[in-house]
Design a protein around this nucleic acid. Structure first.
Lengths: 224, 224
DNA sequence: GCTTACTTTGCAACTTGTGTACAGTCTTCC
DNA sequence: GGAAGACTGTACACAAGTTGCAAAGTAAGC
């Protein structure tokens, strides 16, 4: 599997390079939009990871021009956390999925894998874990093939948990991932959303999709 | 796991304190180099996070003097982004890793965890010892493939023992690594937690995963 | 057998999580 | 452009689980 990474922050670039190589991908690098566009047109990739804020030619432009040339390779864009409208514009330009910086390595790998797997079929990128499957584009969650509509924040909570399956995710971590840095860490919003999610997905309490680890955090139920 | 933070910016200091505590570490604080050096010499830490620009005694000096005293604890330094030469000097002085300010909390946590793990000679996030295996991501303990739910403190005790297999760990040592400096060393909590762990993991007393060495401490059973 | 060290137990205090109601805000749709 | 509805975040009372202590019981070593 061959992946293109277009990213101008050299530290992040090397980090991604190492990460993906260690996970068995072969990787090509570009540190500006022009070079990225050249590579994506010249070669065939299984996935392109493109930062939106690229010098010379921004990420949107790279995607638009690549799509205009009928390049079908799945594209994952990287956006800053506080610029969520970039995600919309990126998807409009032809990206398949997005990830906000900073992200966890496992998240990136999960998305990369999903995108590559789904590239052959036309389906939307989905994160799957046991009977749970989360469509990251329609923001729709299925439990045992029954689909649920989530609100924006319910989705964010669920997405983060699903991207770190097996992991104990502390409330701090969830809060920081979902809100800006300076959000009040003593608030009980996370508990409230966990409660709402449980009620929505599992009204009779038989499945227990989200486990509580008292004093430590929450975790997607491993035994599903 | 117990962490020392030496940082003079009081806002950052409290932020780090909260962050680490909420993620299950016990934390001691110093707001100048002199106090930091005193603490690192006086107690045993699993990690020290030291800002380079400290008053009274700068970070480099703290590290040099600590290393001169043969203190082996892993050290993570904090430097300003635009002073990259500091990180070189810091690593020369004996630091193990660096992080440039500002940083994301998640990154700090990831590095802290990695440093602590590396210090105990564990390359892998899953620590295995005979039929025992402790996954430090899902915080799950398995004995012969049967998984057990541990409470926060049960987990801390087990983690410390598993990170030091073969070693006889005294009660004082366990207490010092699990609680912070003002915890009563005469309490019998450690005995109580060892008891609870044994009962949970080995209810019929056939496996004996934790050995007692009278007058010296506890050890993970080597003959498993 | 006596001392000391460890184990066990029950319990009370405490910490942390849950459920609910409500108010403020944002959306949508006429 | 206004009303109805949905979503988010706070507050608080209640429930549940965890922790630490103390006292009594047991085992080890001299």
């Amino acid at each position: 599997m061959r992946i293109l990474i277009a990213e101008d922050d050299s530290r992040l670039l090397t980090q991604l390079d190492t990460l993906l190589q260690q996970n068995g991908y072969s990787v090509d690098l570009a540190d500006n939009g022009e070079h990225g566009l050249f590579l994506i047109k010249e070669y065939t990739y299984d996935l392109a990871i493109i930062d939106i804020g690229l010098p010379k030619l921004d990420g949107f432009e790279v995607i638009r021009q690549a799509r205009k040339d009928n390049i079908a390779c799945p594209i994952l864009i990287l956006t800053a956390r506080d610029r969520w409208q970039e995600k919309v514009e990126g998807l409009d330009a032809g990206a398949d999925d997005y990830l906000t910086k900073p992200f966890h390595n496992e998240e990136l790998l999960a998305r990369a894998k999903a995108l590559i797997r789904r590239a052959s079929g036309q389906a939307n990128p989905t994160i799957q874990y046991g009977p749970l499957s989360l469509n990251t584009v329609s923001e729709e969650l299925c439990v045992n093939d029954k689909s649920f509509d989530l609100t924006a924040y319910e989705y964010k909570v669920m997405e983060y948990l699903m991207m770190n399956p097996q992991k104990v995710v502390s409330k701090t971590e969830l809060t920081e991932h979902i809100y800006d840095q300076d959000f009040d860490l003593d608030s009980n919003v996370i508990e409230v959303f966990i409660g709402r999610l449980r009620k929505k997905l599992d009204p009779d309490g038989s499945l227990k999709p989200i486990e509580t680890l008292r004093g430590r955090g929450y975790r997607i139920n491993r035994s599903l």
